[in-house]
Nucleic acid binder design. Structure first.
Length: 570
RNA sequence: CGGGGCGUGGCGCAGUCCGGUAGCGCACCUGCUUUGGGAGCAGGGGGUCGCCAGUUCGAAUCUGGCCGCCCCGACCA
């Protein structure tokens, strides 16, 4: 590509609304432009990066037996009704009516449609199958943000595995796991595979591939001493037992005027430290109230509660609902003596004595509460969100917690979709059995942003060779006859060698060209100008270190080809 | 959906409090000079000031409503 003919609209200033580094640099570098909130046009350079990522994914998924499809974006509502997700997914699913008034959905993901195709599988002899496609997904996100990291329209590679049994499914799951590690490594992303919540997808095992980044929206707990890593939506930890000392024979009510918070009670004369308090929360799940009990200093991890309840709707109760239920306002709530309300407690409260909690009477608390004696707990469920510095559940290590971008997610779906949609095959005994499925996704745009988020410096992007929009830029420092001729020759030779090369033949000043080349992050630069050419020299620079070396012009090509080849395979 | 911020040439912004001919930098076009790290001079083009209504002799500026964008939270494969 000749830069003079290319559409690469670089900007000097950061776009006004951008916060995330990847967002700023992808816009400034001329890779993309925003259409509306959560919707971006990819420009040629951005499309090239995405295409290279796509090729890597295709190679690796084909490598584990994948067959590429292309399924529609527009779906009849009927199939979403059959899977049950028309109701489950909620507002995030784009819905529309056609001219006859018939409901449709815009594809949010493609379990239903692939499963429908899979109803043509009839015999165990046809399994296993691994199917995938790259297709636009549409999601009515409540809050798109951070450029390409969270959008309403994006292309995803989603694959679906079909097996006779869970053993076969596990093989496909492991194949994907390994392929994903290779895919992300090839695009320059260091990922952590973490245990995750399956959320609305349904299914059992679920693993997310996370890239550590402050721009990420997820929190990951990881142990540096062993291989434990989990999304905080699932993570557990080891914490020291609290010594309660001798308790009272019965709970004792005491006045606590204006004490409404854990902290206030901890600082109140006659109160109790947070770890000696019981935090009582009221939530409404599917319309029914729930009491949630945690140690005073422990935050509720709401996804754990959602997962345990398999709830479609879960929300904190409103103040008037709480007063109706318990007779007191938030800040004075407790579970002592409460009956008829489903009560779920975190195991860190098990066997505790001498606890302090609300008395269900405004401005009063109870001390000397013995959990097993005084509170009726229906279920003990881990609901606590882990914190950095707590013990690893699997070894003696100490957990670290960091923000991360979810770049891939793999699920074991079981037979949820095959049963709902009738995807059965006959086994060796002629008996119909639902196909055991898995689903596996990678968002392309998010992957582009994640790479940009990780590979940049104060001058701009620093693409890994494997995904760079161009691998080499030839910068002509002056457009005199000799320089142009030398540049054209080198441009053609590099192209002949299969190198993706950009020739900067614009009539701009050298500073502009250098800055643009650095901003858009081309891994290697060859600089040609009359000064060097007079001595038969081409100047070479790698974007990663910015150090320039003079090469004999006749050796430059071979040198660059070698580095590009090494970079592609890195 | 709650809280906060912001909408003024392609991009980044000032002007709004206190109403009176719409500005600056960059980018763009023409000419001359310049040419190894975002050139200089001269000339030039381009804006219904987010939209609608109102107040006023007069509105980018004041009032009301609406729309859009960003951030935090809620939410979220």
């Amino acid at each position: 590509m000749r830069w003079s003919q290319a559409f690469i609209p670089t900007l000097r200033d950061d776009p006004a609304g951008a916060e995330a580094i990847s967002h700023k640099l992808l816009v400034r570098g001329g890779f993309m432009r925003q259409l509306m909130s959560g919707s971006y046009s990819l420009l040629p350079a951005g499309f090239k990066v995405r295409s290279k990522i796509r090729t890597i994914i295709e190679q690796e998924i084909n490598g584990i037996g994948g067959q590429e499809f292309l399924l529609p974006v527009l779906h009849p509502a009927e199939i979403w009704h059959r899977s049950g997700r028309w109701e489950v997914v909620g507002d995030e699913l784009f819905r529309l009516k056609d001219r006859r008034g018939v409901d449709h959905a815009l594809g949010f993901t493609h379990e239903e449609i692939f499963t429908l195709v899979a109803t043509e599988l009839k015999s165990y002899k046809e399994l296993p199958q691994l199917w995938y496609h790259f297709q636009t997904k549409l999601r009515d996100e409540p809050r798109p943000k951070s450029g390409l990291l969270r959008v309403r329209e994006f292309v995803m590679k989603d694959s679906y595995s079909f097996d006779m049994d869970v053993e076969g499914q596990a093989v496909q799951f492991d194949n994907h796991h390994a392929a994903y590690v290779r895919i992300f490594k090839r695009m320059g992303l260091e990922t952590v595979a973490v245990e995750a919540s399956s959320g609305a997808m349904g299914g059992s095992d679920s693993i997310e591939f996370m890239v550590k980044s402050t721009a990420g929206e997820d929190l990951v707990a990881r142990c540096p001493s062993c291989d434990y890593a989990a999304n905080v939506e699932r993570a557990t930890s080891r914490i020291p037992k609290v010594d309660d000392g001798p308790g009272l024979d019965a709970p004792e009510k005491f006045a606590t005027p204006d004490v409404r918070t854990i902290d206030a009670l901890a600082n109140f004369e006659g109160g109790a430290a947070a770890e000696h308090q019981i935090k009582t929360l009221v939530h409404i799940a599917e319309g029914e109230p729930l009491l949630i009990l945690l140690r005073g200093d422990h935050p509720l991890q709401e996804q754990k509660l959602t997962d345990h309840l398999a709830a479609q709707t879960l929300r904190p109760a409103k103040e008037d609902e709480i007063v109706d239920l318990l007779g007191a306002h938030p800040g004075s709530l407790g579970a002592v003596g409460v009956s008829g309300v489903r009560t779920i407690a975190d195991p860190e409260l098990m066997g505790r004595t001498s606890m302090t909690t609300g008395a269900n009477e405004d401005d009063y608390h109870l001390r000397g509460v013995n959990v097993s004696r005084d509170i009726t707990v229906d279920e003990w469920v881990d609901l606590r969100e882990v914190r950095a510095g707590e013990g690893c559940p699997n070894c003696d290590g100490t957990l670290e917690v960091f923000k991360a971008i979810e770049v891939g997610h793999i699920f074991k779906l079981g037979t949820r979709y095959s049963e709902a949609l009738g995807a059965n095959v006959l086994d060796e005994n002629g008996k119909a059995r639902p196909i055991v499925m898995g689903s596996y996704g990678i968002g392309l745009g998010r992957a582009v942003a994640a790479v940009a988020e990780v590979h940049n410096d104060d001058k701009g992007l620093v693409w890994p060779v494997s995904v760079a929009p161009w691998e080499v830029v030839i910068t002509l420092v002056k457009l005199d006859e000799e320089t142009v001729a030398a540049g054209e020759k080198m441009y053609e030779e590099l192209q002949a060698d299969g190198i993706d090369v950009l020739l900067d033949d614009r009539s701009e000043r050298p500073g502009v060209k250098f800055n643009d080349a650095e901003l858009i992050g081309i891994p290697f630069r060859i600089t040609l100008g009359p000064r060097g050419l007079a001595e038969g020299i081409a100047e070479f620079q790698a974007r990663t270190d910015g150090e320039s070396t003079d090469l004999d012009i006749h050796e430059a090509i071979a040198h660059v080809v070698e580095l590009v080849t090494a970079g592609r395979n890195a």
